[in-house]
Structures are given as C-alpha cells and as structure tokens.
Design a binder for these strands. Structure first.
Lengths: 191, 191
DNA sequence: GTCTATAGTGAGATAGAC
DNA sequence: GTCTATCTCACTATAGAC
C-alpha cells in the first residue's frame, strides 16, 4: 500500500476513534508509518486529508448498506438483514460520529459527505418500505419516510446506547425493539 | 452568580457545543468571564471542572425527562409528551454527545454520569411501558425493555439526523415514525 | 479569591536538503 | 517522495504576588 493510501486509512481510523478535533496530523503520520514530509507532500494539510478520509468512509457506508437493502427478499427481511448485520457496535458509526464534531459541521466541504450519506440512506430505506407497501407486505397506513427516519435513528441511537452502557447488547435491544414494532404492521400474507 | 457557578455553566455550554476534547480551559474561562487563577482556585483542572459540569447536565436531563414521564395520562401520552417536548434539536443531546468523546469514555469518573443517565432513562421508559401494558393500553406481546431501548435510540438518533441534515425536521420525522409504529400496538379501548 | 508570569508540551505547518 | 529542522501558537498547568 502506498504511503498516500496508508495516510488516508490511518486518518479514517483516527477520525472514527477520536473525531476530527481529537486527531492531530502527527498521530495520523505515526499510525501510517509516514513522516511529516510525506503527508504534506500528498495533502495540503489536515483538512484535505480528512476530506479524503471522510469521503471514502461515506462511500463505503453507502455501499455496505446497499448490499443488504438491494438483496432479494421482502422489505422486512431486507431491513432486518441491514439492521442485524455485523457491526463494530462499540466503536460507533464512523459517519454518524462526525455529526458531533464541531469543526466538521462548521466546514461545508467536510460536512457534505455526512449530509449526503444520511439523505441517501433515508431515501433508500423509504424506497424499500414503499416497495413493501406496494407488494402488499406492509400496512398502507405507514408513512414510509417517517418510518425510514425512525429506522435510521434507531441505528444511530443504538450506537449511542451501546457506547453509554459499554455493551453491544444495548444496540441489539434497540434494534429488536423497532423490528418488533415494525412486524406488527406487516400484513398477514394471504389470510 | 458566583465565579465558580459561572465556570461550571460555561463548561456545560462548551462541553455541549464542542465536547471535552474540543474544549480548552482558556475558552471556559473566557466564556465565564473568569481568569486562570480563578478557575484553578476552584477546580484542580479541566478534568475536575468537566466532572462537575457533566454531573449537573446529567441530573438536569433526568429531571426534565421525569417531568413528562411522571405526568398523568396513558403510557402513550406520556411517551409522546416526552418525545415531542421542545428541544434544542440542532445542538444535539448534551449527554448523548459525550458518548462520542474518547477522553470522556476512557475516564471512569467522567463516563459514569453518562452511563447512569441512559440506564436510568431506559429503565424509566420500561416502567412506563410496563404500566401501559398492565393497564391494558398496550399489546401484551410488546417487550417493554426492547421497546424502551428503541425509543431512547430514536431520540438519540433523531439528534444525529437533525445535525446531519441541518434541520430539526428530521428529528420530528423520526419521532413521528416510532410513535406511529407504537400506536399500532395500542389496544383499542373497550372494543 | 483573583491576577500575572512562566513553563513544558503538542498542534499544525513551512523550508530546504536529499 | 521523504527527511529533518524550524517556527508560531495554543494547551494545560504551576507559582507567587496582591
């Protein structure tokens, strides 16, 4: 892996663990095994490197979600697969975390990938729910957009609960909670 | 207000806006209109001042939740009142935010109030749901603990969505989403 | 109690050699 | 491309005067 690549990966890991404010150029270099000169040759500074890191992380998150959400199966099955997918729950969401970073939110360039990712995810889930409704699997009274927002929120909030309690179980409980609520709005097949 | 009081309030505000990592003693002093000497006279350092600030914020959050959750009304009404209470949505949750702070989570003393607050909140909501079930308002099949976790998660995740989108509306959508799901599990009264 | 002075450390970046 | 030296400023705290 090139030095440039290692710097981006190092920045991604540190942004995840410590956020933008809590991450120094030096720490990125050390983790990447690269010197100052190397970093400032490839990137104009912390900001530009973080931008590259955030963009990549956002892309990966969308790709990962798309894997479960575009799989075959009913809407409920796809959403369940997405929510129950294996995750580094205690580390939190690498994109959602940036939402709490004042310097990221204050910078339009750094903020854009975060905003776009959540907009995309909510829209993607809305379309899954819509498809489920059209297929007669889900209660027609359900508002797809609001339900999608609730599902994404449970995911993000589940990370918060997990980190607060120190156990991944909390995340699982929250997920089980919405899935049970959602299951109650499933239309019994051919009854 | 005493200088000591102003320092704690200043620390609370900055911890909310910028987190522990992003807040310097100097910025706390400036906001409080106090000098270095004053701060280090009243507190051993940033850590001790932050501890006082976090404890107070956690207490206030519990007290605010208790106001809605102990009010008269059905379980659904009380939970709705809690979720729809006016909030500084775009600023995020002052306690949930700390969950993303590496230095807070790494320190048992700073972390304890955060952990306790969420444990308390989940338990409190569980008891409200339990009461609703006992009163015959809610579906017996609902798991109170899992549902409570989902509700708290929607709240915390709603903050994330709001900050990501830059609009408080996202929070409202997520809340509407769970409340609609939950309403589907309400037992029709005397039918 | 509050002030100013001081100090050690790290952040963030630049410069120029190689 | 990468290295080392250097620079300025901020962070966090201590010391001692008032």
């Amino acid at each position: 892996m090139s030095s440039q690549e290692r710097l981006v990966e190092s920045a991604r890991a540190l942004l995840w663990e410590r956020g933008y404010v809590g991450t120094s150029p030096k720490s990125i270099q050390q983790r990447a095994g690269a010197g100052q000169g190397s970093m400032y040759h490839h990137f104009a500074g912390k900001h530009e490197l973080a931008l590259a890191a955030i963009r990549r992380t956002a892309e990966e998150m969308r790709a990962a979600a798309e894997t479960q959400l575009s799989a075959p199966g009913t809407a409920l099955e796809r959403i369940t697969a997405y929510l129950r997918r294996e995750r580094d729950v205690l580390k939190g969401c690498p994109v959602g975390r940036l939402t709490q970073d004042p310097d990221v939110m204050a910078d339009p360039a750094l903020r854009a990938p975060v905003e776009e990712t959540f907009a995309w995810l909510r829209d993607r889930l809305t379309r899954v729910l819509d498809a489920g409704r059209d297929a007669g699997e889900l209660d027609r009274a359900l508002d797809p957009a609001a339900t999608a927002a609730a599902i994404v929120a449970v995911l993000q909030g589940g990370y918060v609960l997990a980190r607060a309690s120190g156990t991944a179980d909390s995340f699982g409980q929250a997920v089980s909670g919405v899935l049970a609520l959602l299951a109650g709005h499933a239309v019994a097949p051919a009854e």
